[in-house]
């Protein structure tokens, strides 16, 4: 078990307001982990917001209960990790986890390609009615 030096979590209804809450948690995380270089903060935060926005925009409830979003972000000396979950979401259609970047005219469809470009690993899993994106970035820049 690697030392977790800073960690932030949230869980709330998957509504647009949740995105601002994720920004707030990221800002707090960087305060607690001031050693993380600016470039890593910028790339990782962008990827986390993209994943959270994906949940808010696309997660479909599995039952009559609304979808909740969960975000769990941790910092170790060598790694940034975020687990972005859609609780109570239906199983999504098959996901192409390595899509091409859309061309210049497209107004959507860049989120996942952008996440791939920003972090080291992207994995998706579905377990117990929860869809989770796991993003990691390592090693940290000097």
């Amino acid at each position: 078990m690697t030392d977790v030096l800073a960690r932030r979590t949230l869980r709330q209804m998957a509504l647009p307001e949740a995105i601002e809450a994720v920004h707030t948690e990221l800002d707090g995380l960087w305060e607690d982990a001031s050693f993380v270089p600016d470039m890593d903060r910028m790339t990782f935060a962008t990827a986390v917001i993209e994943a959270a926005s994906n949940v808010v925009q696309h997660a479909v409830p599995e039952s009559t209960m609304p979808v909740e979003i969960g975000v769990d972000i941790s910092v170790t000396p060598v790694r940034l990790e975020a687990r972005v979950s859609a609780f109570g979401a239906a199983s999504p259609d098959p996901i192409d986890t390595d899509p091409a970047m859309p061309d210049g005219e497209a107004e959507s469809g860049r989120g996942l390609a952008l996440i791939r470009a920003l972090v080291t690993t992207v994995t998706f899993k579905r377990q117990d009615g929860t869809n989770t994106w796991i993003l990691s970035k390592s090693p940290l820049h000097d």
Binding site: I49, G104, E105, R110, L114
Partner: peptide
Amino acid sequence: AFMDSSGLGALIGCLK
């Protein structure tokens, strides 16, 4: 200070 792909999509839509 921050823009995501939704923001970028809006810029492209506004350009059009």
